[in-house]
């Protein structure tokens, strides 16, 4: 009965932001923030940010610790709803509709915008059940079909060869890097359009990190990816666009090459050259 009140994102007519759409510059933005602010109680954590994620491209978000990167990212699939004190203002548009529309179906939103967290968080279930968790939510599904989804997801996350013989063993028995790739595979199994990654490599060794970077590279094009990272080289390596946040404000946003080679703002320059943060 609740469903009736909920608005499917596909029925976007009601939310159409028409003329207020951000300047597209001929590009196809999947997610776009316009004067988007986030507050924790009275604390203004993200200040009037204007960032867009282009379809099929990788956008990196960088900035010193505590500048609001995670906060912003978590707003994109409304994970910040879990924080009681969290409020937002401004607009965050996904596929033409406002993510914070009161009648939006959050479950569908989250299904279309997947997330990978800083620390790997597999469920204490088998590897198979971890991957199958998302697809099963969508409704009853044939075993053969599910097997297919599990295999493709694991293959895409470059984990298949390592775990194909022990799909039924507990996921917590995997190494940290494997767990993180499992989480990526789990997110992919739902076939989201956007993949949000909050420092996915911060808990991993260089080898696992480079595997995941390769993975991001492979996935781009098909998926729209936003990745938060503290690793400047990583941002430079994997992303097409980079957004630099500082003390809650978006300082600079543009093509990665441009931002890293000729930053427009002094703060950006200081940060990427390692003068602070």
């Amino acid at each position: 009965m609740m469903e009736k009140n909920k608005m499917k994102i596909s029925e976007k007519t009601a939310f159409k932001t028409d003329d207020k759409d951000p300047p597209k510059n001929g590009k196809d933005y999947v997610v776009a923030a316009r004067d988007f602010s986030v507050y924790y109680g009275n604390f203004h954590a993200v200040k009037n940010a204007n960032v867009s994620f282009e379809r099929g491209k990788v956008t990196a978000i960088i900035g010193p610790s505590g500048c609001g990167k995670s906060t912003f990212l978590r707003c994109v699939n409304r994970m910040n709803d879990l924080v009681d004190s969290c409020r937002t203002s401004g607009e965050l548009i996904f596929d033409g509709i406002n993510i914070y529309h009161p009648r939006l179906d959050i479950v569908e939103l989250r299904r279309r915008i997947g997330m990978v967290f800083q620390r790997p968080n597999p469920f204490p279930k088998s590897i198979y059940d971890n991957i199958a968790y998302g697809p099963r939510l969508a409704g009853s599904i044939k075993k053969s079909e599910l097997d297919g989804i599990v295999e493709t997801s694991l293959r895409r996350a470059a984990l298949w060869d390592e775990v194909k013989d022990r799909l039924n063993s507990n996921a917590l028995g995997l190494s940290g890097g494997q767990q993180q790739r499992l989480c990526i595979a789990r997110a992919l199994a739902v076939r989201p359009e956007v993949l949000l990654m909050d420092e996915p490599c911060s808990a991993l060794d260089p080898k696992s990190t480079s595997r995941i970077e390769d993975l991001i590279d492979e996935l781009s094009g098909e998926y729209t990816i936003a990745i938060v990272t503290h690793n400047m080289q990583q941002a430079a390596r994997v992303s097409h666009y980079t957004a630099f946040f500082y003390e809650g404000s978006l300082i600079e946003f543009g093509k990665t090459e441009t931002l890293f080679t000729s930053p427009q703002k002094q703060a950006t320059n200081d940060y990427i050259t390692g003068r602070f943060g």
Binding site: L82, R110, F117, N121, A187
Partner: peptide, 27 residues
């Protein structure tokens, strides 16, 4: 039960009750 389990379940598109029932309660 770590919050990350809740986030993981919700992030995959589980409803509140479903996340409780399938992940949080077993843990």
């Amino acid at each position: 039960v770590p919050n990350s389990f809740r986030e993981a379940a919700l992030g995959l598109g589980a409803g509140k009750w479903k996340s409780i029932y399938s992940v949080i309660l077993p843990s």
